[in-house]
Design a protein around this nucleic acid. Sequence first.
DNA 1: ATAAATTTGTTGTAAAAACAACACTTTTTA
DNA 2: TAAAAAGTGTTGTTTTTACAACAAATTTAT
Lengths: 224, 224
Amino acid sequence: MEYFQELKATKIFDFASEFDCQAMMFCFKTKFKTFDKNENIITQGNRIEDIILILKGGGIVENIDILGNISIVMQLKKGDVYGVESAYAGDEFYKDSVIATEKTLVLFMNKHRLINPCENRCKRHDFVVKNLMRLVAESNLKLLDKLTHLSKKSTREKLLSYLGLMSERAKSDYFEIPFNITELANYLSVDRSAMSNELSKMKKEGLIDYDKRQFHIFNNKIKY
Amino acid sequence: MEYFQELKATKIFDFASEFDCQAMMFCFKTKFKTFDKNENIITQGNRIEDIILILKGGGIVENIDILGNISIVMQLKKGDVYGVESAYAGDEFYKDSVIATEKTLVLFMNKHRLINPCENRCKRHDFVVKNLMRLVAESNLKLLDKLTHLSKKSTREKLLSYLGLMSERAKSDYFEIPFNITELANYLSVDRSAMSNELSKMKKEGLIDYDKRQFHIFNNKIKY
DNA sequence: ATAAATTTGTTGTAAAAACAACACTTTTTA
DNA sequence: TAAAAAGTGTTGTTTTTACAACAAATTTAT
């Protein structure tokens, strides 16, 4: 079966045999399609017919609001899906556009076929739904974390909220972050130079130490 | 059956007959429990055994971070669930505490029973999972909206992002928001008085008009 | 290995936000 | 309906942030 390796590598179809995949491709009325760089994979405002899964390449999710402002909502890479939340929430139209940032192979899955359990109640369907649910659940938790940081008023508080969580995750005062400084500023929605400045101050005050992506947080110094 | 009316009123069990409910209560190993005001329904750090559904009353989701800061993550009211994302994401421990803010009736549903499809692959289970998925999907979309607003740097941009979306939803330049001014400031994580001030300025500049929760946005004046 | 591109830290300045205080209005409650 | 509580708009002050500009360091590409 064509593209079986690509399907198997995703979190959605990782459980499935080639036979399973073949069956599901029929069941979900799938279509494979390749897009060139800068091509629209999904267009904002169009009626939701499919959920997409990126099999190769990547893209960006772009939103244009009522005032005409364009903003990048997120990036999509191999294994990522788009449209699941909107489909399950019952939205009628895509709320964003998805644009390929390189040559990209996309799997389209029919929304109705996916959302409504098969007539024959196949076990495969259950697995896919469970995997989709896990993806959406994980996304939810990530968004909540980010919101926690962004809700803080000052840059220092945002940083401490983020670094504190990273430390907690690592179960250590020493940990590595998945961003460089520029990316971190972008993630926390603060000015890079201002944030860099704030980090320096915190280092001087002995609250934290860092080099590149390696951080050391002195939790004892932060609170009594 | 006790509490059937309460179950029927939720988005999770709205489809179910009394017979269905009874069957599911057994299937999901449910427990009903009433909590007094200020009692802990769920304790942060405890092992995740159950997902909860609020049937009467309400509570708050509270998080204590590694630095000792306490923050209210969200409010729970009748029909809301807590723990679904963590359970599906495979977390081991509750990441927050849930505390009753009044006398509250709670349904506990066993995580494993809920996540893993029944042996007998009952149709009811599918409905519940689909309803849970819809809830999580909707939550996801709400969080994304909020993040869009909070990502803006200035108060004015945050306001325009929020009001623009509300206007889009209402398909009109005239719309009503679900917050009062204090609540809106809280939602957007900005100082109330500063935001009130900014709203006044925007009104003076002719960008918007408002009274209480009624807003009128002059989209044509905002660009150019 | 060298050049080019990107990332980073620092500084000063202008703009914006938080904060605090207070009078006034609206809503809730007894 | 009166009193209490909660919400709102305004102002001035202080703190913080964004922004811009630039040199130094690091990474990437050739």
